[in-house]
Design a protein around this nucleic acid. Structure first.
Lengths: 191, 191
DNA sequence: TCGATCATGTAACCGGTTACATGATTGT
DNA sequence: ACAATCATGTAACCGGTTACATGATCGA
C-alpha cells in the first residue's frame, strides 16, 4: 500500500499556498488532484491532526460571525521543509491494480462477447474522461504565464491524456483481437 | 480501496485450472499477474480460509513422503459459478494513485532540474519494464494456438506495453517542457 | 419548507503489507 | 556448514472507505 501516508504531502502542498480548513482542503483536492490522488474527510481530518502533532502545521480557529466555527491550518517552517524534502525525493514505484486485466487474464472461461463487452465498458469510461481532461488542458494553456504553477498543473493533465489515450487504444486493439478470435478459432491472427 | 477483496478471484481463477497450495498460488501470481495484481502470503492464506468458509474451495492435505505437509485447494462447483459470474460483471472504475503527479503538481516549489530528475527516474523504471514485457510478448506469440488462454494472457501484456509506452512518452514530453521553462522563464512555449 | 452546502469529526471496518515464528529439504 | 527454497500461518499495523452524528446557513 505504499507504506506511507503521502496524502499529508497533498495537504502540505496546498497549505503552502494559503491557510485552509479541512473542508477547504477537500475541495481543493477534489478539484485538481482527484484524478490521481483522492482523499475523503475520513482521511483529511486525521491527517491534519497527525501533521499538527508533528509540528508541520498549526491550527487556529477563524473568527467567524455566525455559522459553525472554522479551523484554519497554516504550514509551519518545519512543515515547509518537510514538503520540499519530499518533493526532491525520487518517486517510489507505483503500485497499480487493474481489475479489467484480472478479468481478461481468465477470460477464456467465458464467451468472447462478454469479454468484448467488458473492454467496451472500460473504453467508454475513459473516452468520457478524455473529454473532461481536454477542457482542463485548454483552460490551462490559456492561462500559462500567469503563474509558474500552471505549467506544472498542465504536466499532470498531459499525463492523464496520455494515459487515457493508451487505455482507449489498447481497448480498440483488444476488441479487434477478440472479434477475430471468434472467427478463426485457432487463436486469431495478430498483426 | 475498492471495497471488495478481488484477490479471491485471482485465486479462484488459478484453482479453476488445477489444484494448488497457497505456496503454489503465490508463485503463479508472482509469475503472471504481479504486474497488475500482486498478493503476499499474508493475504493469500487468509483469503483461502475465506473462500473455504464460503464453500467456494475445498481443501485436502496432500500425501507427501517427507517434508512439510502441503495443503491442496480445489475449486468447488459453487466456486466456479462465482468465478464465472464475476468474470461476466462489468469492471468497476479503477482507482490509481500516481506519486509522480502529486510531486509534479507542487513542482514549482523546487528547482526545475530536480523535477526533471524525478521524471527521468520514473521514465527509466518503465523502460526497463518494457524490456521485460517484450520477452513475454514474443514468448506468448510463439505459443498462440496451443491454448486459448495464451490469447488472453497476451492481451494483458499488450496493455502493459501500451501503458508503459504512454508513461515513457509523457516523461519525454514533460522533460522537454521543463527544459524549455528553464530558458524562457515566462512559462515556456508549448507546441 | 426543504434540500444543498458549510463545517468538523468519530467509529467500524476492510484490504493489504511487514515482520515474525517454525521447521524440513535440497543444493553448493 | 550454510543458504535457498519449500511450506503454512499469525499478529500488528496502516492507509483508506463508508457510514454516522451534529448542526448552522442560504437559496429556491
Amino acid at each position: 500500500m505504499g507504506r506511507e501516508n503521502k496524502t499529508i504531502y497533498a495537504i502540505l502542498g496546498f497549505l503552502n499556498h494559503e491557510d485552509l480548513s479541512g473542508y477547504d482542503l477537500k475541495k481543493r483536492i477534489d478539484g485538481s488532484l482527484s484524478y490521481f490522488w483522492a482523499a475523503g474527510f475520513g482521511q483529511i481530518y486525521p491527517s491534519l491532526n497527525l501533521l499538527e502533532r508533528n509540528g508541520w502545521v498549526s491550527k487556529k480557529a477563524e473568527d467567524k460571525e455566525g455559522g459553525r466555527e472554522k479551523i484554519l491550518y497554516s504550514i509551519t517552517e518545519s512543515g515547509r521543509k518537510e514538503l520540499l524534502t519530499w518533493l526532491s525525493t525520487p518517486v517510489e514505484k507505483e503500485y497499480v491494480k487493474f481489475e479489467i486485466l484480472l478479468k481478461l487474464f481468465f477470460g477464456s472461461q467465458i464467451k468472447a462477447d462478454k469479454n468484448i463487452e467488458n473492454v467496451k465498458d472500460f473504453k467508454d469510461r475513459y473516452i468520457g474522461q478524455l473529454g473532461i481532461l481536454k477542457h482542463f488542458d485548454e483552460n490551462l494553456r490559456n492561462h500559462l504565464g500567469e503563474s509558474e504553477d500552471h505549467l506544472y498543473y498542465l504536466l499532470t493533465v498531459l499525463f492523464g491524456e496520455k494515459l487515457y489515450k493508451a487505455y482507449v487504444e489498447w481497448a480498440d486493439e483488444a476488441i479487434e483481437v477478440l472479434e477475430n478470435s471468434k472467427k478463426n478459432n485457432k487463436g486469431g491472427e495478430l498483426n
